[in-house]
Simulated scan of single mutants.
Amino acid sequence: MYQHVRTGRRIAAGLACAAAVVSLTACGNGKSGTGSADGATPSTAAKASPAADPNGIEKLSAKEIYDKSRETNAKAGSFRQKMTRENAKTDVLLSGTECVGTVEMTGQGSFDIVRKGNDVWAKFDSNMAQTIKEKSGLTVSAGTWLHGPPTHPLMKGLASWCHTEQITEPDTADAGLNATKGKVTTVDGQQVVPIFITGKGDKVTWYTATTGEPYYLKQDATREDMPDITNSDFGTPVNAEKPSGQIEEAPQG
């Protein structure tokens, strides 16, 4: 099973891991203005201000930049995250206890996800409803919100795509992480410092803002089974709410 890879603490495993059968649980890192439970679709990402003052983070070591940027994202309390890899795509707005957004899994279907504390709701298209039946034996209704706690096996797997641990447990770099710092450059109109992580012949690049708050803004990976990530809308309230419409309780396996 393809395992969840979070970033620095598990990057070696991530670079060494080969994609296997995609499960309903997230992997990769493995995002919305105000969240809408009806559509569960985040709004367009806000642009970083080009007039922001330099923050000097490029003067730190690669590992220090890595740790500082993850800490800064967590301190924002919430942000939008878009992730793409060869077999999945997500767009969610998340905090430590909330999440609103969408998940698309290639060849398996898509679903809307809403999490608010100890409640998780998900609404599936017909393909995803069939995938769930084939993988877990559980019958769920397409187009109807499914509700359950984050401890329910199915709901736990679905909610894991939100990666709320980025707020509650921001990642840090291992002492042995093979990380090097690049020169300040511009990505998507934002001045950033790149950090290059290499292993097993593959490379992941992380970009941290060098003006304004030193946010971790983007990840590019050389392998298709590892995620490309963009983060934005820092500090935007999630405002997750119980969805309107028909709601069913998650079936027991």
Score class of each variant (00 low, 15 high):
T131R: 04
W145R: 00
K156Y: 07
K133Y: 11
L146H: 03
T151H: 03
S136L: 14
D125G: 08
T144Y: 10
P150C: 14
G137H: 09
K156E: 14
T139L: 11
S141E: 15
S136Q: 11
A159F: 06
A142T: 06
S141L: 01
A142R: 03
T144H: 08
M155H: 03
S141G: 00
E134A: 15
L158E: 02
E134L: 13
K135H: 09
E134S: 14
H152S: 04
S136T: 15
T144E: 13
A142E: 12
W145G: 01
P153M: 07
T131L: 10
D125F: 11
V140C: 10
M155K: 00
K133S: 12
K156R: 05
G143N: 11
F124S: 04
M155I: 10
L158D: 02
A159Q: 00
I132L: 08
T151C: 05
A129T: 06
I132Y: 05
T151V: 09
T131M: 08
S141C: 00
A129C: 07
S160V: 08
I132M: 04
A159G: 05
I132C: 07
T144S: 06
H152E: 06
T151E: 14
S160F: 11
G137T: 07
G157H: 02
K123D: 04
L154G: 02
S160K: 01
E134I: 06
P153Y: 07
K156T: 04
K133L: 13
A142C: 05
T144L: 05
P149N: 06
P150T: 09
D125E: 08
K156A: 15
M128A: 06
S126C: 03
H147F: 07
S160N: 03
K156V: 04
T139K: 15
